[in-house]
């Protein structure tokens, strides 16, 4: 299934040509987890990735949902 991924922070710089208004479409297997998605995105610091959908921070083992876009962000401790 296809999942729409919106990238934030400095992750965008790792995807040349990234268009914020569109995000990117990622093909994931049925039942794929957040961990699987992060692996597919090939972000070298997976522990720094925060995935948010529906207002909640997802856990690594949470499953991706059809037609639910996810926001891929970074860990920040405040400011």
């Amino acid at each position: 299934m296809k999942v729409t991924v919106r990238l934030y922070g400095t992750w965008r710089q790792r995807f040349p040509g990234y268009e914020p208004s569109e995000g990117i479409e990622v093909e994931v297997p049925e039942g794929a987890t957040v961990r699987d998605l992060v692996t597919l995105l090939e972000i070298p610091e997976p522990r720094q990735v925060v995935v948010i959908a529906g207002g909640r921070v997802l856990k690594a083992e949470d499953k991706m949902q059809r037609q639910v876009p996810v926001d891929v962000m970074q860990t920040i401790g405040g400011g």
């Binding site: 934030y8 922070g9 400095t10 926001d71 962000m73 970074q74 860990t75 920040i76 405040g78 400011g79």
Partner: peptide
């Protein structure tokens, strides 16, 4: 530290708008 070394220099504290807004 990822925040200090990567996020803050490039976006500053304004990097928080996206995650805090996304968390409602």
């Amino acid at each position: 530290d990822h925040m200090s070394a990567e996020v803050m220099p490039k976006l500053g504290t304004a990097a928080l708008v996206a995650p805090v807004n996304a968390m409602g």
